[in-house]
Design a protein around this nucleic acid. Structure first.
Length: 598
RNA sequence: GGGGGCGUAGCGAAGAUGGUUAUCGCGCCGGCCUGUCAAGCCGGAGAUCGCGGGUUCAAUCCCCGUCGCUCCCGCCA
């Protein structure tokens, strides 16, 4: 019995039609003489009725149905009597009077119920992913993901982009994250790597004249997972020739506007706000600030020097800063709540979180007594009112900013300052090109080594690498980095200077990126690009808290997939073909390893 | 590598200063029921309280260890 309709489309206008539906038994209500079956497919749910007039064989069959049986139903569409219409159901004003039911396949007792949203623990949901994906919430998420992908493609193609594939077995370029390696059978002892991104290939496509490229690219990074990242993810990867960063912004803003309009019917205002990295850190303590709420920091370093608080004074004396945050009405916070906030600050390296409360008569509690001589100045600097809570972190600039930023994020979460259906985008720009490598004490590329330094630093780049800003940019939405990109270097001379600063000699550069450098000898165009993360974008749009809820078959936090039980051991023969031998870890060898590392 | 949380029936949870038979909802099995839509009512089965060790007359509860999952720091150009 092949379906004539889906479970989401029948209306009173179909009254009297003989139809056939296929789907899964979502709910059964057996009243003895009358059976109701909610039949579900991905389009919706339709109520099927087997009533007292049905032949006994049909009644018996209806009574034997269980959750998630896959069945076919032939019957007649009939409007429900007025009093029995279900207004909560799109198909709630009709039902199917069953004439025949066929069980297409039975279903075992379920490990968990297929509901709107499964409440089973994630481990179990992942093991029975095929069932979890039947839930309404997951069906919605996967549908949204499809629609976002489609709308992105639609927009980019309309703007003249070609979708071009790049290989997933590539050379390992041991930069950045740890590579996943794939052993070569033919070339003993050699390995491919899975791409962390199509970076080098898309740049080469620009050299080849493809002008505007995009790809929904799978990227692989062998690093520890989090709620918003896992070993493999999908990027809407793109690259353009003859562009400035403004051109890249325009494409991405246009694409996201199109995507939001087409999928959620939401207008997102463009252009997006731009915030320099330094400002983002200074005001919000993060390079991915959540702008759905304020809570901007103030710097009271100079003011603190006039206080009696030696802790602050010595930090400022050592070149540190005092960052302050005003929480309106925060004076009502309990000591425990403040302790929780301090814990958040400490995870990012702060030594503590100082606080005081603003009262009708001045300042009170915490470190208030050290500020008695400058109470009014502090209150006016903070624009504070009685009932507010003031929070302070004193440390090196970066630590002070990031740890108070953690406090800000926690406040945003705890006080539910960010509405889930609001989308606040911003471009974070003017990132430092280099950062200090704590292991070697030298300089390392903050993004990657092919990022163009901003014009004004070209003359002084070697003298003060730490001051150099790059032409690189992140797109941030609601406190999450959802895209990262840059204008690339196409001038071999500048490229050489960058390699030099990060301590790459010519030979090493050739060994790692020779093919790209070769390509750049043959008339490379100026180019730049960006790569929005599809998973994070869909996660935000779906209002989910983890990337795993918008990935059909995700890995768990240790990179395993409970459904197919990967990663798994392989046969000796497979290893032999690949010239591999597994070394059992023992306490001894671990000891040796750690000695070697030190 | 480090820190926090969790682990009790198929699922989700509760629980006891350590003490006879470990509780509730869903699901499962059986019965009743003609209009429900999270149907309802009656009855039943189902748990070595993650695993190992210790303390104790007695441990699911306390202690130590271990495993698994999860959140976070590190890591993630």
């Amino acid at each position: 019995m092949k379906r004539s309709h889906t479970c989401g489309e029948l209306t009173p206008a179909d009254k009297g039609k003989q139809i056939t539906l296929n789907g899964w038994v979502h709910r059964i209500r057996d009243h003895g003489g009358i059976h109701f079956i909610n039949l579900r497919d991905r389009y919706g749910i339709t109520q099927v009725v087997v009533d007292e007039t049905a032949p006994q064989t049909l009644k018996d069959l209806a009574a034997s149905l269980k959750f998630e049986y896959c069945i076919a139903v032939r019957g007649t569409v009939r409007p429900r009597p007025e009093s029995m219409v279900n207004p909560d159901m799109p198909t709630g004003s009709i039902e199917i009077e069953a004439k025949e039911i066929e069980v297409l396949s039975a279903c075992e007792t379920l490990p968990f119920m297929v509901d709107e949203r499964s409440e089973a623990r994630e481990e179990l949901r992942l093991k029975y992913r095929f069932l979890d994906l039947r839930s309404f919430a997951m069906q919605q998420n996967i549908r949204l993901r499809h629609e976002v992908s489609f709308a992105a493609r639609e927009y980019l193609v309309s703007k003249g982009f070609y979708e071009i594939e790049t290989p997933t077995l590539i050379r390992s370029t041991p930069e950045g994250a740890r590579d996943f390696l794939v052993p070569s059978r033919i070339k003993a002892g050699s390995f491919y790597a899975l791409p962390q991104s199509p970076q080098l290939f898309k740049q080469i496509l620009m050299v080849s004249g493809f002008d505007r490229y995009f790809q929904l690219a799978h990227c692989y990074r062998d690093e520890d997972a989090r709620g918003d990242r896992q070993p493999e993810h999908t990027q809407i990867d793109m690259e353009m020739s003859f562009v400035s960063k403004e051109d890249v912004f325009e494409v991405v803003e246009g694409m996201l506007s199109h995507v939001f309009k087409k999928t959620l019917n939401i207008e997102i205002p463009t252009p997006f706000q731009r915030i320099p990295f330094d400002t983002a850190m200074d005001l919000y303590g993060s390079d991915k600030p959540d702008l759905r709420f304020g809570l901007a920091f103030r710097d009271i370093s100079q003011l603190a020097e006039k206080s009696d608080f030696n802790v602050f004074k010595s930090v400022v004396g050592d070149g540190g800063v005092i960052k302050a945050l005003k929480v309106s009405k925060g004076a009502a916070f309990s000591r425990k709540q403040i302790d929780e906030l301090e814990k958040a600050a400490k995870t990012y390296g702060a030594k503590g979180l100082a606080w005081m409360k603003v009262t009708d008569s001045g300042l009170d509690g915490g470190i208030a007594r050290f500020f008695e001589n400058i109470t009014d100045t502090l209150i006016s600097t903070m624009e504070a009112e009685p009932g507010d809570l003031l929070l302070f972190v004193a440390d090196k600039w970066k630590t002070a900013c990031t740890s108070l930023g953690a406090v800000r994020s926690k406040l945003g979460e705890d006080l539910e300052l960010g509405r889930s259906n609001e989308y606040r985008f911003c471009w974070v720009i003017d990132f430092p090109l280099f950062e200090e490598d704590e292991e070697t004490g030298g300089w390392a590329a903050a993004h990657h080594m092919f990022t163009m330094p901003q014009q004004q630093y070209l003359d002084t780049m070697e003298k003060d690498p730490g001051a150099v800003k790059g032409d690189l940019y992140d797109l941030v939405c609601n406190g999450m980095e959802i895209a990262s990109g840059s204008i690339r270097i196409h001038d071999p001379e500048i490229q050489k200077r960058i390699f030099n600063i990060v301590g790459f000699d010519e030979e090493e550069a050739r060994r790692r990126f020779g093919f790209l450098l070769d390509a750049f000898q043959y008339g490379p165009p100026p180019h730049g690009g960006i790569a929005p993360g599809l998973d994070r974008l869909v996660m935000i749009m779906a209002g989910e808290k983890t990337i795993r809820d918008v990935i059909p078959f995700p890995k768990n936090t240790i990179g395993a997939s409970p459904m197919d039980d990967s990663p798994s051991l392989v046969d000796e023969d497979q290893l032999k073909e690949l010239h591999l031998q597994v070394i059992e870890e023992s306490d001894e060898s671990e000891g040796q390893d750690s000695q070697q590392q030190e």
